[in-house]
Amino acid sequence: MVSTEPAKKLRWLEAPELENLGYTPSTEGTINHTQQGLLTPLLLGKEDSVWRMSIEAPEALLDDIGSSNYELADLRSLMPELSMEELAVAGHAVALSNWHRSHVFCGKCGSQTLSIEVGGKRQCTADPAHREYPRTDPVAIMLVESVDGKHALLGRPRSLKRRGPVLTCLSGFIEQGESIEEAVAREVREEAGVEVKNVHILGSQPWPIGRGGSCELMIGCIAQAKNDTVHMDDTEMEEVRWVSRADVAKALDRSSSKDNPLTGGSGEQHEDLDFFIPPPWAIAHHLIKIWAGQPSAWFSAKL
């Protein structure tokens, strides 16, 4: 839940406020609601000696929420408003809730499952040996440097077409039995027709609002191209192109501007630049920023 005062900032509800909305913690670690009965909380962690939990608001409470100083909001729409700390906690809550809602039946026998250990697992009601654990899907995301070290390979998947003139790093799920390096090479080859080598792993970022409601772990990489000729897969990608270091630097300066469609902007283009890049809350932004900040090629001639 999000307080509408002030400016859509995330505010955690204390016990008295929860009780005013009909929620009462029980001695069994559940939460009782006056209309919906027992609700199962999901443990998010402890900070400053305070345990934080999330619960899904029952539909019966939506009218009450709408008439109070609270409103429901999509996490993606709140990204420009929230701090990184708030995003981390809210993202955890959303990811855990999505996982629980998609695993109400046992994947082994089809029986109903129940949340246990304050949301840390789900237990099959038919077989105690069948348990489900919250999962994270690994995704390789990569900036590809050109052969001459002066350009970056950026693209726009068809899923981002509606968001306007956006270019970002190529990415894709890591398949079973595949290393991160192999996934980088395969995805770049499939999406852009470019062969790569010398994959450097720089860092990672949890992404709780991934495709299909899954929680993803974005593994950020920089790779060196073996060739510069692009053969784009137009069934998956809307655009793929090489972008100069100078244009990447310009896009970085405008990544948080009010025009950026990824921050809710109009997507209005500037005369000297026809694309936007992801804002600072995305690992793609930081891969692009790290590469653009190099005075020369990321990869030396020795590699």
Results as ranks from 00 to 15, higher is better:
261 P>L: 08
198 N>D: 14
286 H>L: 01
243 V>L: 10
212 G>Q: 07
153 L>Q: 06
213 G>N: 07
104 V>A: 11
170 L>T: 10
179 S>H: 08
281 W>H: 12
301 A>N: 12
262 L>I: 06
90 A>H: 07
288 I>R: 03
251 A>M: 03
247 D>F: 04
151 H>Q: 13
26 S>E: 12
212 G>F: 01
124 C>S: 09
117 E>H: 07
68 S>L: 10
142 M>F: 10
5 E>Y: 09
18 L>T: 02
212 G>I: 01
240 V>H: 02
281 W>N: 06
209 I>S: 08
303 L>P: 00
49 S>G: 09
205 Q>F: 02
208 P>T: 04
298 W>N: 04
53 M>Y: 13
247 D>E: 13
171 S>R: 10
140 A>F: 00
195 E>W: 02
175 E>I: 02
185 A>Y: 04
239 E>M: 08
96 L>D: 04
141 I>D: 01
159 S>N: 09
148 D>Q: 03
70 Y>E: 05
182 E>A: 12
88 A>T: 13
52 R>T: 15
74 D>E: 14
20 N>V: 05
46 K>E: 15
2 V>L: 11
300 S>Y: 00
298 W>C: 06
242 W>K: 06
104 V>C: 05
236 E>Y: 05
280 P>Y: 05
170 L>K: 04
69 N>Q: 07
187 E>V: 12
284 A>F: 01
158 R>I: 08
257 S>G: 14
211 R>T: 14
269 Q>M: 14
268 E>S: 13
27 T>A: 09
213 G>L: 03
99 W>S: 06
166 V>W: 10
86 E>P: 08
185 A>D: 11
268 E>Q: 13
66 G>I: 04
47 E>V: 09
199 V>T: 13
286 H>C: 04
292 A>N: 04
56 E>T: 15
230 V>L: 14
19 E>Y: 02
274 D>R: 14
102 S>C: 01
36 Q>W: 13
221 C>D: 01
29 G>V: 01
116 I>G: 02
106 C>R: 04
145 E>A: 08
110 G>E: 00
70 Y>D: 01
13 L>C: 09
51 W>P: 00
204 S>P: 02
253 D>L: 13
40 T>N: 12
40 T>L: 11
101 R>C: 03
249 A>W: 03
285 H>C: 05
231 H>Y: 14
260 N>P: 04
7 A>S: 11
274 D>F: 09
182 E>V: 03
234 D>Q: 11
